[in-house]
Design a protein around this nucleic acid. Structure first.
Length: 270
DNA sequence: CGAACGACCTGCAGGC
DNA sequence: TGCCTGCAGGTCGTTC
């Protein structure tokens, strides 16, 4: 589920329901995520307190309380939703219960996500080496061009590296490279400044468009309506291997890069 | 330092 | 129907 647009959509969905409400209980049914949930610490830090703010760094959500932060990552399959009853489904691992009986509920079937605590986000091991935000002002073609010189890795791997830029996952890497007409296998260090300018703009564009559509997969925080919806209809290459390119009559090719499915048009992308 | 790859875990689709 | 394989939105840690 979660790439950057899905995490941003999650943030916007839960924000009005979690801020400035007293936390009365935290139930951890399964502490074994990618790193064990520090249950005692969370209880000590959060019971009878409230969240004063929520922000996103890459795909991490940071919920602030008393100048300290709950770090949440959704991994491959995680989700957060607001509910107000105890209909607990399989893989609903954590509840944060508020005074008004509403609940912030975390579900993560594959348990690749995390729930951690930090009093110093800028030095936290998960956050301190992250590259710039793609939607921030440090991210542009010059930045990618300069950083990529002498890099031999395929450009798709390069833009999916969170030390280079955060938040570009497999769907949007494929999509942005298609829009920029760059083949995903091209060596990062051999791509021109012009092409990196195009690529950086397309990354921003595809992420913003997806955020505006509520992400590619979610929309069920507040109500458990199963509305699909989304950005999925706009996908040009992801999930379309073997189908016809939307720009030309060619058939889209699929290869694997860094063990991730990579789809491109052999005619449009060079 | 960069690059490649395994690891973590469950669910599901497809083939036999 | 059931079993087996491979793949899925991420990314850290290890090794070369």
């Amino acid at each position: 589920m979660p790439e950057l647009p899905e995490v941003e959509t999650t943030l916007r969905g839960i924000q009005p329901h979690v801020l400035n409400k007293k936390i009365v209980n935290i139930n951890v049914r399964q502490p074994s995520l990618r790193w064990a949930i520090p249950v005692e610490i969370l209880l000590n830090k959060l019971i009878n307190k409230e969240f004063s703010g929520i922000k996103r760094r890459g795909k991490y959500l940071l919920l602030e309380s008393s100048q300290e932060f709950l770090i949440i990552h959704l991994g491959m399959s995680g989700s957060l939703r607001i509910t107000d009853y105890g209909d607990i489904k399989k893989h609903d691992h954590v509840d944060i219960v508020f005074e008004d009986e509403s609940i912030l509920r975390y579900c993560d079937p594959r348990r690749f996500g995390c729930f951690l605590w930090t009093d110093d986000p800028s030095n936290h091991f998960l956050l301190k080496n992250l590259g710039p935000e793609p939607l921030g002002n440090k991210f542009n073609g010059h930045y990618l061009f300069d950083l990529s010189r002498k890099r031999k890795t395929p450009v798709k791997n390069f833009i999916m590296n969170s030390k280079v830029v955060v938040g570009v996952g497999n769907i949007y890497a494929n999509e942005a490279l298609f829009k920029a007409k760059i083949r995903p296998t091209r060596q990062a260090g051999k791509i021109s400044l012009n092409q990196y300018e195009t690529l950086s703009m397309e990354i921003v564009s595809v992420l913003k468009k997806s955020i505006n559509k509520g992400g590619t997969t979610l929309r069920d925080f507040i109500r458990s309506n199963n509305t699909p919806g989304y950005f999925k209809n706009e996908l040009m290459v992801y999930g379309r291997a073997g189908k016809t390119c939307k720009n030309c009559p060619s058939s889209l090719k699929e290869i694997r890069l860094a063990q991730r499915s990579s789809v491109y048009c052999p005619k449009c992308q060079s």
